[in-house]
Design a protein around this nucleic acid. Structure first.
Lengths: 203, 203
DNA sequence: CTGCAAAGTTGCAGTGAGTGCAGGATTTTA
DNA sequence: TAAAATCCTGCACTCACTGCAACTTTGCAG
């Protein structure tokens, strides 16, 4: 995904330190657990001062989740870019699946490790999607825009929140079942679109 | 709701300090904002030592939200107590509405103030429902039990998460529209049960 | 290539969150 | 009324996080 073509030295270095910090955070937390990793540890592993760490992230959790500041606008754009024939819910579904595929194609191992870490630290799970207030706000905006309703109407708010919930569930199952995230997410969104009707009874 | 009949002196005092801390937290944060209130302030207002504060809450946020440790099991029980004729989703819907009505009947002003505070501090919103991991886990357990599926199946996880999302949305709208929370929540849950179908186009 | 402006990094000092421990006070139980 | 369980509190300590003021690096003319 992310295309960094004509960038100056300055911006390239910024990106490098950011990812270095993010990777170090995920790796260390995976090894020792969240409580046994300090900001100082992460900074040392990324070879910057602890003070610099806070120029990039607001705390450990954020560094581990490595929130992409461009993800929100991108998701919003994806929703609006879906063919007009699709229902709003279907558009959100397609947009989410696209985003997941693209993000995962970038570096799959990191995401798997990250989700395994999240699995073991529910605190992080809370911040993963619905904690990403910015992301959810952008999604709400995209939906509202597409459907022609104000951004504080129930429908856009609920659709975005529900999509976030589905995403969380899919990710949760992903990190413990080895099935492709794409399939799990699709299945979960279908269940949601079915109005959470009674599930098929299994043996 | 909460019935504290045959309680010893000890438990009564515990409950008192807990609510004293909770009330103080909400009041102070409403007055000064989250960042301008320290744990020491809250403790002083409730007339206990700062150290004691942490015997009750893990932090400011938790004190403001005043998570009822009995809410989880209670909600789970409510789900299981719904008539067998209801679909699972309908049972969750009924259980949630019951819980909200009961909780609100207890002390309405506190909840209104609390939600106004939450509205101004999105950090709190994240922890309100889906952040209340314990509550959501109990709800998942109740649903799983009722429907006869394992607690790590997609259906219970998604239904609980989606219900949480609906709750968040309803509360968000409540704190800015003066409509009764019960009605807003019912409306939101209906929209969810309709599979998030296209909403009625308004003028 | 040189000098200036913009932006990034770092150290320092300081507030506040959160935890473990141990002694003292209070309630419960026997 | 004494022993046991439980709770409250102060103390000491680590770590998170922020503002500020140098200092260094990069970008951009001139």
């Amino acid at each position: 995904m992310t295309t960094h073509a004509a960038e100056g030295l300055r911006d390239r270095k910024k990106r490098q330190t950011r990812t270095a910090l993010g990777h170090a955070a995920v790796r260390l937390v995976a090894e020792r657990g969240l409580d046994h990793v300090t900001v100082e540890d992460i900074s040392a592993a990324a070879d910057v001062s602890p003070r610099t760490f806070f120029n990039y992230f607001a705390g450990k959790e954020e560094a581990v989740l490595g929130p992409d500041p461009e993800a929100g606008p991108r998701l919003r754009a994806r929703v609006l870019a879906q063919p007009a024939g699709l229902s709003t819910a279907a558009a959100v579904r397609a947009a989410l699946l696209e985003e997941v595929a693209a993000e995962l194609a970038d570096d799959r191992e990191l995401w798997l490790l990250r989700m395994r870490v999240v699995q073991q630290h529910p605190v992080l799970l809370a911040k993963l999607f619905s904690g990403g207030e910015a992301l959810e706000r952008d999604l709400v905006a995209g939906i509202a825009e597409r459907v022609g309703l104000p951004a504080d109407d129930t429908y856009p708010l609920l659709l975005a929140a529900a999509a976030g919930a589905a995403f969380r569930v899919a990710v949760t199952r992903w990190s413990s079942t080895a099935a492709p995230l794409h399939d799990l997410l699709a299945e979960t969104l279908d269940l949601l679109a079915a109005g959470l009707a009674e599930p098929p009874r299994r043996s």
